[in-house]
Computed example of a mutant assay.
Amino acid sequence: MRKMNFRTLILAAAAAAAFAAPAMAQTATAWEMPKKGDWLVTGRVTDVFSGADDAIVTSAGAASGLNVDVGDSIMPTLGFTYFLTDHFAVEAILGTTQHEIRAKGGSTDVAVHETWVLPPVVTLQYRPLTEGRVSPYVGAGVNYMLFYSGEDKNGFTVDLDDGFGYALQAGADIGLQGPWSLNVDVKKIWFETDASVNDGALRSDVALDPWVVSLGVSRKF
């Protein structure tokens, strides 16, 4: 429920800012659309959630009757966007999230591992508008998943492989006042990791493929 409320909040905040923008445009310090050479620095609250439900098998490939479940995480993140032209920008996001990994199946529901993930993402954005109060964008790029500070649970040992993935992005900056804007951002990341449990006695090819949904405030420089 908490996660769903956060995603609903993002939509509500975006709608409220969009309706408020025309009134703000009458002020002396009205927001101006970012242009070539500008920076946007964005502080966000970010929800990272995965629908992973991959089978856990034995070393010989036999079904164990268990599946992987990866918990959600809500954490602060930072975004840095540089405008190469009026229409194209490069964004890098920095942040880290913590996730619990469980094995589920039948009457079994047990935590096996908890890990921090550093998933830096770099995207190239296209922004079609150069005037107005709303700057929508779409983007595509790459990410790297780095697992660290893992903690094994309930007698299990778990190893996760780091690696590269790719991402698609959509979002908007909605002008507030002066250099400030509201940012709404959604990314879909495709990434698969090889999980080894108990030194390979069990294993799983886990398609994490997380959604990264964010609400934040940007400042233009």
Rank of each mutant, 00 (worst) to 15 (best):
L84G: 02
R133W: 11
G216R: 09
R203K: 14
V68Y: 01
V158N: 04
A170Y: 13
Q177S: 11
W180V: 05
W31Y: 15
D199K: 11
P119N: 09
Q26C: 08
K3A: 10
A63L: 11
A167C: 11
F221T: 05
A30R: 11
N67K: 11
R44S: 06
V213W: 15
D72M: 00
V158P: 03
P22L: 01
A28Q: 14
S149W: 00
D86C: 05
V212T: 08
A92I: 12
D47F: 12
E91N: 11
R133G: 13
G79P: 06
F147W: 11
V48Q: 09
A18R: 05
P179F: 03
R203F: 08
P34K: 04
L146D: 09
P128G: 05
F88K: 00
F191G: 11
K3W: 15
A195Y: 14
S218F: 11
L146V: 03
G106R: 04
D38S: 09
E32S: 12
D53C: 06
D161F: 07
G43I: 04
V138R: 00
V41G: 14
G132E: 09
L84K: 00
Q125N: 12
I189A: 15
V213M: 13
G165T: 07
V197S: 14
Y137F: 13
S149G: 13
N198K: 11
T115N: 14
M24F: 14
T8C: 11
K104F: 08
T27F: 09
Y137P: 02
A12K: 05
S214V: 10
H113G: 08
M75F: 12
G95A: 01
V110D: 13
Q177Y: 13
W31T: 06
V112S: 03
I10D: 00
G65E: 07
R44F: 13
W116F: 15
T29I: 08
L182W: 10
Y82K: 03
F80Q: 00
A172V: 10
D72L: 00
W116C: 06
S149F: 01
S73V: 06
A103W: 06
G65H: 05
S73H: 08
D205H: 07
E100G: 01
W39A: 01
S50K: 00
A207N: 14
A16M: 08
A140E: 02
V122Y: 06
A62I: 05
K3L: 07
